[in-house]
């Protein structure tokens, strides 16, 4: 299990990185923490000609809060995400989800930006940024653009990132009054990819829930919002009957495929269980 040969470059600036990407086109792959990329290379599932290691780009580092926005540099590791006081305050969903990602040694190298750009449909963080309505900052030769998380994830390992572009940071609105989030997943073993994971974010007004976003990972080719279920509960008090109703409608939102760990039917069922548990916990949090 040795990777096919490749070349390696470690640019010191974004400008240099763009030049490398321009020069190699499709044959180049960006390398950040490498925790998703290197297994695929070791298994020879892909064979890029060159890896462009962006880990020296200081512009991609750091966590800060400014103007009501939490800004997380793309090179932030899962360990840093989990430990950050800013993240815990402004976007606790991310910290909670990060603790479900693999294991300490992987979290120490795996990066926030890498996870989003890799866009594994079973990964936790893509679902979270979608639930939090985050905005992704993408740099390219022509400058920097921002893309809503909702427009970023196109499909299986496919994103809005174009050739020569680099995801540099993620901006998340700081948790506003009344908003709460919740996260849970069903994985066979701690640290495994989930059979279904749910990232939820919404505003509570007493018993009632508003502006709820329910985003599932592990059930489709990309993170997917359960909009029918969201609408079912909009503005209502979270009761057992309401949850049952929302769970029953989940089939309108999700159509999971079979994989070796669970059938689509099983994933849909587990997604319903998660809906009930996560929403109950969120609703119960104010009591």
């Amino acid at each position: 299990m040795k990777p096919a040969p490749f070349d390696y470059a470690k640019p010191a600036s974004l400008e240099e990185a763009f030049s490398l990407l321009d020069g190699h086109g499709e044959d180049a792959r960006l390398l950040a923490g490498g925790q998703s990329l290197l297994p695929t290379l070791n298994m020879r599932l892909s064979a890029p000609a060159i890896l462009v290691d962006i880990s020296a780009l200081e512009a991609l580092r750091g966590i800060s809060i400014d103007n009501g926005m939490l800004r997380i540099g793309a090179l932030t590791t899962h360990t840093e995400l989990k430990a950050s006081k800013e993240v815990a305050r402004a976007a606790p969903l991310l910290a909670e989800a990060a603790s479900h990602i693999a294991h300490p040694a992987v979290r120490n190298r795996g990066t926030f930006g890498g996870s989003l750009a890799h866009a594994d449909p079973a990964a936790e963080l893509p679902a979270c940024v979608l639930a939090l309505d985050a905005s992704l900052e993408i740099a390219g030769r022509g400058g920097t653009r921002k893309v809503a998380a909702a427009d970023f994830f196109h499909g299986l390992f496919e994103t809005d990132l174009g050739p020569g572009e680099i995801l540099t940071a993620v901006e998340v609105p700081v948790l506003r009054k009344g908003f709460r989030s919740g996260f849970a997943e069903f994985a066979r073993r701690s640290g495994d990819f989930a059979m279904s994971a749910l990232a939820a974010h919404g505003r509570f007004d007493g018993e009632r829930v508003h502006e709820l976003r329910l985003v599932y990972a592990g059930v489709d080719i990309r993170p997917v919002r359960a909009q029918t279920a969201e609408q079912t509960v909009e503005g209502k008090a979270v009761t057992a009957d309401l949850l049952a109703d929302a769970m029953a409608r989940l089939g309108d939102d999700l159509d999971p495929m079979d994989d070796p760990h669970a059938s689509g039917v099983m994933k849909l069922h587990l997604s319903g269980v998660l809906l009930g548990r996560v929403l109950s916990a969120m609703a119960g949090a104010h009591r």
Partner: peptide
């Protein structure tokens, strides 16, 4: 990753 062996937590 796909063949599941027992790990410590469970």
């Amino acid at each position: 990753a796909d063949y599941l062996v027992p790990m410590a937590t469970e």
